[in-house]
Amino acid sequence: MDVIFALATGALFGLGVFQILRRDLIKAAMGFAILFTAINLFIFATGAYDSDVAAYTDQIENGQVSDPLVQALVLTAIVVSFGALALLLAVVNIVSARYETLDSDQVDALQK
């Protein structure tokens, strides 16, 4: 289970980095969302000590209960990333209307 989780996080991270480097602005924004999810999963993993016991429970059969703090951290990080993603998409929306393209190579008025 741990290995699968680690592999999944790593794969998401790689996918996110790949997407964020694409020329299409929407795809880059999605890459940002994927990357954030990967990091959230990583934070989440730091608190699950062994097996998957809930944070607050008195029915422990095997293993140690999870760390509740990381769950609070992930929750905060999700809210922050949601705000950032909303703003990012809003800016992409206005850019696409003004430049009539989503190719980041063509949004280049600053170079002139």
């Binding site: 964020i20 602005l25 880059a28 940002f32 990357l35 954030f36 990091i39 950032a84 703003l87 990012l88 800016v91 992409v92 206005i94 850019v95 003004r98 949004v107 280049d108 008025a109 600053l110």
Partner: peptide, 18 residues
């Protein structure tokens, strides 16, 4: 041009905060 600078910065700086 502020809009273009903003989209540049939000990508770069988001990577920074990530």
């Amino acid at each position: 041009l502020g809009l273009e600078a903003a989209i540049k910065y939000i990508f770069i700086s988001s990577m920074g905060t990530l």
